[in-house]
Simulated assay, not measured.
Amino acid sequence: MTSPESEKPELDCREVLEEVYLYIDDECSEVRRSVIRAHLDECSPCLAEYGIEQEVRTIVHRCCSKEQAPQEVKERLRRKLSAIEQVGEVFTEVAERER
């Protein structure tokens, strides 16, 4: 007998296809990956769609992996990421003071 905590949630096809990019990019939890993998193993239409998505990713990577962003774009991104990090630190400090 399995406990509710150990049961894996079932996903419908719509949910799987919405999350296939997270799965392909390895950007979801191991539990979520195993749930999606189990669905793909059992659902031919979703597996075919996943195959198409994976192929598109491979082609894009092959065609664009040598592309370099202009230095101006890199610097702008660095500045924005730094600003986001600073704002996050301020929010963390405020939250810690309020405890």
Rank of each mutant, 00 (worst) to 15 (best):
S6K: 00
V20C: 01
V56I: 07
Q54N: 12
S29I: 00
R99F: 13
V35D: 10
D41E: 03
I59D: 12
P4W: 11
D26E: 08
V94A: 07
L22Q: 07
V60N: 01
A83M: 14
L22Y: 12
E5N: 14
V90T: 06
E85Y: 12
L77P: 12
L77I: 15
A48E: 06
G51D: 07
R99Q: 00
I52Y: 14
V87D: 07
P9Q: 04
S29F: 03
E89L: 07
A69P: 14
E85A: 10
P45E: 10
G51Y: 01
G88F: 15
C13K: 12
E10C: 11
S29C: 05
T92C: 12
G88P: 06
E42L: 03
V87H: 11
T92W: 15
L81V: 09
V90A: 11
M1S: 13
R33H: 08
V35E: 06
A95F: 06
E96K: 09
Q71C: 10
V73K: 04
R33E: 12
C63V: 15
S34W: 07
Q68M: 09
Q54R: 15
E49M: 01
E42Q: 11
D41M: 01
C28H: 06
E55R: 04
D12R: 10
E49K: 02
M1Q: 10
L77G: 09
A69H: 07
E5G: 11
C46E: 00
C13G: 05
V87N: 02
M1G: 09
C28D: 04
R99M: 02
G51R: 00
E98K: 09
S34L: 14
V87F: 07
V60K: 00
A38C: 01
E93V: 11
E49D: 09
E19N: 02
V73F: 03
E96W: 03
P45N: 02
I84S: 07
E7H: 00
Y50R: 10
E85L: 07
K74E: 13
P45Q: 15
L47M: 03
V60C: 10
V73A: 01
S65W: 08
E75N: 05
P70C: 08
R79T: 13
C63E: 04
M1A: 10
D25M: 03
V90L: 09
V73M: 00
R62D: 03
R97I: 05
K74V: 10
G51I: 05
S29D: 02
H39E: 08
D26T: 11
I52H: 15
R99W: 06
E49A: 06
E10H: 08
C28T: 05
C43L: 02
V87T: 12
S82F: 15
I24Y: 07
M1D: 03
C13I: 12
R97K: 13
R37I: 13
A69T: 14
E67I: 15
E7S: 02
E85Q: 05
S29V: 00
L47I: 00
L81A: 13
D12A: 15
V31N: 04
C64K: 06
H61F: 12
S3M: 13
E75D: 02
I36S: 00
T2L: 08
F91Q: 11
E85H: 12
L40E: 00
